[in-house]
Simulated scan of single mutants.
Amino acid sequence: MAKAQADRIVHKAAWLYYTHGLRQDEVAQRLNISRASVALYLRRARETGIVNISTATHLFRGEQLAREVEDKFGLEAVWIAGEDLAAGEAEAEIPSLGASVFLEMVGRGQRVGIAWGRTVYAIADVMSFADLEGVTVVQLCGNLGAPYSYRPDQCTMEIARRLNARGLNFYAPLVLSTPELASALRSEPVIREQLDSVAGCDLSLYSVGTLDEDSHVVKCGALTANELAQLRKQGGAGVIAGQIIDRSGRLLDCDYNRRVISADLESLKKIPRRLTVVQEESKLAPLRAALAGGFCTHLVATAAIARGLLAGG
Score class of each variant (00 low, 15 high):
residue 103 L to Y: 07
residue 110 Q to H: 10
residue 86 A to H: 08
residue 137 V to K: 00
residue 121 Y to V: 03
residue 110 Q to T: 14
residue 108 R to V: 09
residue 70 E to A: 02
residue 84 D to S: 12
residue 125 D to K: 03
residue 102 F to H: 05
residue 102 F to I: 06
residue 123 I to W: 00
residue 107 G to V: 08
residue 89 E to D: 12
residue 118 R to P: 01
residue 82 G to L: 02
residue 127 M to W: 06
residue 115 A to I: 12
residue 82 G to Y: 00
residue 68 E to V: 04
residue 137 V to L: 02
residue 107 G to R: 12
residue 78 V to Q: 01
residue 98 G to K: 02
residue 138 V to T: 15
residue 139 Q to H: 06
residue 87 A to L: 14
residue 83 E to R: 13
residue 90 A to Q: 01
residue 70 E to N: 06
residue 91 E to D: 07
residue 122 A to G: 09
residue 99 A to L: 12
residue 65 L to E: 03
residue 87 A to I: 09
residue 124 A to D: 13
residue 134 G to I: 07
residue 98 G to I: 01
residue 85 L to Q: 09
residue 97 L to S: 01
residue 72 K to Y: 07
residue 69 V to E: 06
residue 119 T to D: 08
residue 67 R to D: 08
residue 99 A to K: 01
residue 139 Q to Y: 03
residue 64 Q to L: 15
residue 129 F to A: 14
residue 98 G to S: 06
residue 81 A to G: 04
residue 93 E to K: 12
residue 124 A to R: 06
residue 63 E to P: 04
residue 64 Q to D: 11
residue 90 A to L: 01
residue 67 R to G: 07
residue 123 I to C: 00
residue 133 E to F: 13
residue 102 F to M: 12
residue 73 F to A: 07
residue 99 A to W: 04
residue 134 G to M: 05
residue 73 F to D: 06
residue 102 F to S: 03
residue 79 W to M: 00
residue 69 V to H: 13
residue 96 S to D: 07
residue 117 G to L: 09
residue 68 E to L: 10
residue 113 G to K: 00
residue 74 G to V: 11
residue 71 D to M: 09
residue 120 V to N: 02
residue 79 W to Q: 01
residue 103 L to P: 05
residue 68 E to W: 15
residue 130 A to P: 01
residue 112 V to M: 01
residue 114 I to Y: 00
residue 125 D to F: 00
residue 66 A to V: 13
residue 127 M to C: 14
residue 132 L to G: 00
residue 103 L to R: 15
residue 128 S to I: 05
residue 107 G to A: 12
residue 72 K to T: 04
residue 63 E to Y: 13
residue 127 M to T: 05
residue 95 P to D: 05
residue 136 T to S: 14
residue 98 G to V: 02
residue 78 V to A: 01
residue 72 K to F: 10
residue 65 L to V: 11
residue 132 L to N: 03
residue 86 A to W: 13
residue 131 D to G: 15
residue 86 A to E: 13
residue 127 M to P: 10
residue 84 D to Q: 11
residue 76 E to T: 09
residue 113 G to I: 03
residue 138 V to E: 07
residue 130 A to I: 02
residue 119 T to W: 03
residue 135 V to S: 04
residue 131 D to P: 02
residue 99 A to S: 12
residue 107 G to I: 15
residue 79 W to E: 05
residue 62 G to M: 14
residue 79 W to F: 05
residue 131 D to F: 13
residue 106 V to W: 02
residue 67 R to W: 14
residue 137 V to I: 09
residue 112 V to I: 06
residue 74 G to F: 05
